[in-house]
Amino acid sequence: MGDPVTVLGIGGYVPGVRVTNADLERHLDTTDEWITQRTGVRVRYRCAPGEATSDLAVEAGRRALRHAGRTAVDVVVVATTTPDHPIPGTAPAVAKRLGLGTVAAFDVQAVCSGFLYAAAVATSFVESGSATAVLVIGADAFSSVLDPTDRTTAVIFGDGAGAAVIGRGTAADGPGWGAFHLGSDGDAADLITVPGGGSRARSLPGQEFGAHLRMAGGTVFQAAVDAMASSCRSAMHSAGWYAHEVDHVVGHQANIRILRSVAHVLEVPESRVVVHLDRVGNTSAASIPLALTAASARLRPGDKILFTAFGGGTTWGAATLVWPSRLPATTVLGDNDD
């Protein structure tokens, strides 16, 4: 067996338009107390006019490369559900703007599970010898698909990007990534959906297809807890971990109540669940790498990290990672990040 496939660097970025719960109170029939208590979100950031997903992805990617001390990778994978355009994918432009030349670059669309799906692909590239290092970026500008009058979704989502460089470490880094346990259920496609904008809508001109995100909150909640807990058990089993050994759970930051429920079902203490959604909202594919970056100051070499996500599709997944040696702490928002 060669050196472990692990994380060589991480980085995150959120755009400049800061939206507090008090700001939302002025436009929606809601209150700061209601949003905080029911979702856990206090602040989210949104793109300015003219700003798009690739702009966020480039900045997060630049920070992750700098954190890894690298100027080159062999592949760029961008996990996004809100690409700059239907055609082409977002990754090639991101790779070029990062000065990575003509490397392989493509998008992965698994909604909020996108980062874990992309990390699984990246890990496989490295393990097979097809690449020595892969830049994985989760980036979404969900403000582009939100109905600003829908208080069930408008209060939750924020825009952002998070990134990780995945490649071979050294024996001192421990085992690195464990097996990825990914899943999907196309029967539940309607739970989280933007009906319009695709080939179905274009094939039926004149028919109405909504352009905004629609989400069946309660059903999503139960499906998410079931799928995340089940995939976490599989990932822990593959790694030979017991729940009490997990140092950090870095889950998709959908809702504080879902994260808490997953911890409850797995019997992992809530104190080990990384919570970042209060500061940036649900940033879809960006949420896991953003949360990891924000938590980096408290990660120690050898810490056992359990990742899990659930998103539209529906899709879900979990994976384990032993935090490598010598990765310095970094931040998303600056000194007061975590």
Binding site: G217, G218, Q222, R257, R260, S261, V265
Partner: peptide
């Protein structure tokens, strides 16, 4: 309903 769903978990 979300609180009730959490209670169901």
């Amino acid at each position: 309903s979300l609180v009730l769903v959490e209670l169901s978990v």
